[in-house]
Amino acid sequence: MITGHRGAAALAPENTLISIQKAADAGVSWVEIDTQLSADGIPVVFHDETVNRCTNGKGKIADLTLAQLKSLDAGSWFGEAFTGEKIPTLSEALDTCLALDLTLNLELKIHHEEHTAPLIDAVVALIKEKNYPIDKLLFSSFQKPALERCQQQMPEVRRGFICEVWNDYSLTSIAASQPYSVHIDHRILTPTIAKSIKDAGYVLKIWTLNNVEKAQHFYDLGVDSIITDKPDTF
């Protein structure tokens, strides 16, 4: 039921290989990470549009080559023990997940609409090149066009729609991409919303819950999966 968020974001610098390892050490079977493209078109694992918060560098991921990104320290901001940790390529992260027997919730991090097609094309090409096991993968995104493109290019991979708002039209609006799951901000999930999502036949995931005392409440609402920074606690 527990998915480690950005690896295990409370235990190690988010979206790094050591963070994925920490999630596995905590005993989870699912991990969530983010991917976007470097300036030279390589899928890397990173959440923010810029490297400013989580490295010792500055600038947008989309403006920096893989070599420039690999030159950055992506660990010391979190703690001295993680100094020298690198931004992983998606290829490296996939290998790590496979080695640790983790199922991957891969968020396609799209900061600008024009990045949608290049990112998905590159990710799909990589998954096919590696012959990555489909049962160990789920694509997720806030962007419906991204999920629809995933469906067109690799329909056999499960898709999850991420949202932080929900209204009467939400279920209708996501139907075209035929998602497997809905990933909703736990702060907006009500019994009525939970019931509508479950009644529609979707797997229900919430993000990012770090208060373990609230877990039972969400379980009672029918939540199937909790995405958390603290997989060890849960």
Rank of each mutant, 00 (worst) to 15 (best):
D101H: 00
F82P: 00
T96D: 02
S91M: 12
F46V: 03
T55S: 13
V123C: 08
E107R: 08
D34A: 08
K136A: 08
G41C: 10
G84V: 04
Y132C: 14
F139K: 02
P133Y: 13
L104I: 14
L108P: 00
G84R: 13
S76W: 06
L64W: 04
C54K: 11
C97A: 07
L108K: 02
P133Q: 15
L64P: 02
E85L: 02
F78D: 10
A67E: 13
T103Y: 14
E129C: 14
N105P: 00
D48C: 12
I127E: 06
L98R: 14
S91L: 03
K128Y: 07
N56K: 03
E49K: 15
V44Q: 12
H112M: 14
N131D: 11
H111W: 12
S71H: 02
D40M: 06
T35H: 12
S140L: 13
N52M: 10
S38N: 12
T116V: 05
R53S: 09
F78G: 01
L69S: 02
D95V: 02
L102M: 13
I42M: 10
C54W: 04
T96W: 00
I127C: 01
L147T: 05
I120Y: 04
G84K: 01
I120W: 03
F139R: 12
D135T: 10
K128E: 15
T89A: 12
G41F: 06
K58A: 09
E85F: 05
Y132A: 15
T55E: 10
A74C: 09
T55V: 05
D135N: 15
K109E: 02
F82K: 03
I110S: 00
L137M: 11
E92R: 00
A122N: 09
K58F: 13
T50I: 08
N131Q: 08
L102N: 11
K144F: 10
L108S: 06
G75D: 05
S71P: 06
H111Y: 15
Q68P: 09
V123H: 10
K86Y: 03
I42L: 02
N131Y: 05
A74N: 07
L98K: 02
D101R: 15
H112N: 08
I134N: 03
K130S: 09
L102C: 05
D73V: 05
S76E: 11
S91E: 11
E107W: 08
P118D: 05
F139I: 09
L64G: 00
L66E: 10
G79T: 11
I110E: 00
K70N: 04
E80R: 06
A93F: 07
P118V: 04
N105G: 09
T65K: 11
F78W: 06
T65F: 10
G59C: 04
D40A: 12
E148A: 09
S71L: 04
K128A: 12
F46Y: 12
S71N: 03
